[in-house]
Design a protein around this nucleic acid. Structure first.
Lengths: 144, 144
DNA sequence: TATTTTCCTACCTGATTACTAGGATTAGTA
DNA sequence: TACTAATCCTAGTAATCAGGTAGGAAAATA
């Protein structure tokens, strides 16, 4: 029941883009340095975010990436589901769930449905902007 | 973010023991047949439940397993945490969490903490007896 | 004694995770 | 125009884990 590095790094990547959004593209090199994550690995992750239209890429020298939308318009759920795949705890519940031959007399599925709902309820109600706000609040307390 | 077969099978195993609890031990062979799970694989799973004192084993012919406590006294969380290990979505939150060098300026950890809380809140508030009740309600509807 | 059961350890195969590596392509800059 | 800095794309890889299988010892009953 673990979130993989793909999902976790994607979240930090998007947050980094939101925090360092000056209008100019942000290079992966800078993100990798700040987040202490391999640049080559981040390439693969941001490629997914790019193809899904979450970020826009600018190629060539002084290129980089920018967010396509406002931080408020991304939920943590959007980002995690894109990079992790489904967040449902078993394959037989949630969206695009696979039919199970035992579903007739399966009671445990009710547990998984409650769990699925609880998980989505959390990640779909936190926006990237929330993370930015939390970050700012945290930074402030350091300054004082 | 998936619950493995170990946790899922353990839950079905415990539920089977709760449903077929006549006082006589229930053999793994019967459980395996009813649940359509490899008996050999179930051996490994019930061994963990046995060592943790969740079930009592009776060896020899006409032996088997019985629940140590009443179904009301097991939560789904107990069973899953025992067989799956920690249910926390990342290693840096929850009980026995590992310290992270970045925890100082890590904001995403707040997401994981909310998620961890939501997950535990579900599994710790469903008892094995609840599963039995749901099963009975489901069986009734089939009879009609 | 024969049979039925749990108990224990070892092994195995395929998939996944978390990367690394190398080079092609694009675009700004000297 | 050459150089450099960036994204883009594909392949490979070591380690771990999932999900079992296999074989036999030990215990208890009939």
């Amino acid at each position: 029941m673990k979130i993989s590095t793909k999902g976790r790094y994607a979240l930090r990547l998007m947050l980094d883009l939101a925090i360092y959004d000056t209008g100019d593209p942000v290079s992966l090199k800078d993100i990798a340095k700040r987040q202490e994550i391999s640049e080559k690995y981040l390439e693969q992750i941001i490629s997914v975010l790019n193809k899904a239209g979450f970020v826009r890429s600018i190629r060539g020298a002084s290129g980089g990436y920018v967010l396509r939308r406002k931080p408020k318009e991304y939920t943590v759920g959007d980002i995690l589901r894109l990079t992790e795949g489904s967040l449902s705890p078993v394959s037989c519940v949630g969206v695009e769930s696979e039919e199970c031959v035992r579903s007739g007399d399966c009671v445990t599925v009710m547990v998984w449905e409650k769990l699925d709902k609880a998980i989505n309820d959390v990640v779909d109600n936190i926006s990237l902007q929330d993370l930015v706000d939390w970050h700012m609040a945290q930074s402030d307390s350091y300054v004082i």
